[in-house]
Simulated scan of single mutants.
Amino acid sequence: MLPPLLEKIARAKVLVVGDAMLDRYWYGDVERISPEAPVPVVAVKEAKELPGGAANVARNVRKLGAACTLFSISGDDREADSLEQLLDKDDIHCRLERDKLVNTTVKLRVVSKHLHQQMLRIDFDSPVSKDARVKLLDNYLKHLPEYDAVIVSDYGKGGLSNIQEMIQAARAVSRPVVIDPKGDDYSGYRGANLITPNRKEFEQVAGRFRDDADLERRAVKLIQDLDLGGILVTRGEKGMSLVQKGGRALHIPARAQEVFDVTGAGDTVIAAIGCAWAVGSGLEDALQLANIAAGIVVGKLGAATASPAEILHELSLQEG
């Protein structure tokens, strides 16, 4: 039952650790094609900044009602200042390990307001230093027991090279760990309670699957090889597929609705599951919460969140 679950989540404390970034949006109108090249000309009318990556996961956690802290690595720059200010406005405690040798990761999206369409994305990345990674791990190990659950948001930016130590430390104090994975090698996630790849990410590691039964077989092998509690594969319009240790599988259809923007939907899913597990929820209720919340955010433009009020409203529509 989701109403009692949402009430419990309001008393939870969730730790998010991972690759935080700053999302910049430039909104404008597209009315002509450039004479210099066959590309649309966007006349920018509005600019906006939002927390991105692991910071967007933290934002989703807080919106669901749980207290949230974010541990991440950033540059020592204006973008890091902006990120901290944005998170502070959302009442999210933020500990950034600032590295003077790198730039804070920024994703710039150019969006046509008229077309409700993303026209271009530009990424600004730089490598993370070993010193910053060690400081992040030390801070994590020191404060881990203060939280009810851990969400690891890996965007492959290099800040999580010590992820195995993080998982083992969480297991030692009986804290569930949910991971949004990246890359073609999942060995670093060994021992996690749940990983949440999308279909493309899962197939990159486990191989292309033909049908649900084939997905389940491949997931079971990966679970056994990496001592995982389970794998949740998010499959876009086909919903989500959960395979647990022991082979139990659950396939959840997506909610039928208009999709404006899938940006950050995976962040919403992992935030919902982490919040639910922080208060001892069963996995089926956690997945129902995640599915409804994700359905709400893809109906919005840009990286968005779903509030308890929106979730309860959507639930009432489904039950009505």
Rank of each mutant, 00 (worst) to 15 (best):
A67C: 07
C68W: 02
R62V: 02
D81S: 06
A80Y: 01
K89W: 12
A58C: 02
G75W: 03
D77A: 10
L64F: 08
Q85L: 12
Q85Y: 10
D88P: 05
K63E: 14
E84L: 02
C68L: 03
N60V: 11
L70N: 09
L64N: 06
D77I: 07
S72E: 13
A80T: 10
V57M: 01
R62L: 05
R78W: 08
I73T: 01
L83F: 05
D88N: 14
C68S: 02
S82E: 12
R59W: 12
A80R: 11
K89L: 09
S74V: 01
S72Y: 06
A80H: 05
D77H: 06
G75L: 03
D81W: 06
R62M: 00
L87N: 12
K89Q: 12
S74G: 09
T69N: 02
V61D: 00
N60G: 07
C68Q: 04
L83C: 01
C68Y: 12
I73Q: 03
E79A: 13
L64M: 10
V57G: 01
L86I: 03
D88E: 15
A66Y: 02
V61C: 01
I73P: 04
D76Y: 05
V61N: 09
F71Q: 00
V61R: 02
S72M: 11
S72T: 03
E79Y: 14
R62P: 08
L83M: 03
D81G: 06
D77W: 08
L86A: 11
K89V: 15
S72N: 11
K63G: 14
D81P: 02
S82V: 15
I73K: 08
R59Q: 12
S82D: 09
A58F: 01
D90Y: 12
S74C: 13
I73L: 08
S82K: 15
L87E: 09
A67W: 13
T69E: 14
L86P: 11
V61H: 04
D76L: 10
L70W: 07
R62G: 04
S82A: 09
Q85T: 15
E84H: 05
D77R: 09
C68N: 00
E84F: 00
R62S: 13
C68K: 06
K89Y: 13
D77N: 11
A66G: 09
D76I: 04
L86M: 06
E84T: 12
L64A: 10
A66P: 03
L87T: 00
D81L: 08
V57T: 03
A80W: 01
V61I: 09
A58Y: 01
R59H: 02
V57F: 00
D76H: 09
V61A: 04
G75Y: 05
E84Y: 00
S82R: 15
A67H: 14
R59E: 13
A66R: 00
L83N: 00
R78D: 14
L87P: 07
R59D: 14
F71S: 04
S74A: 14
N60I: 04
A66N: 09
R78N: 11
A67N: 09
T69G: 04
C68D: 07
G65K: 05
V57L: 06
T69V: 01
G75Q: 08
L64I: 09
A66V: 08
D77L: 14
R78C: 13
E79R: 06
D76N: 13
V61F: 10
N60D: 08
D81N: 08
S82Q: 12
L87A: 01
E79K: 10
T69L: 10
K63P: 07
D77G: 09
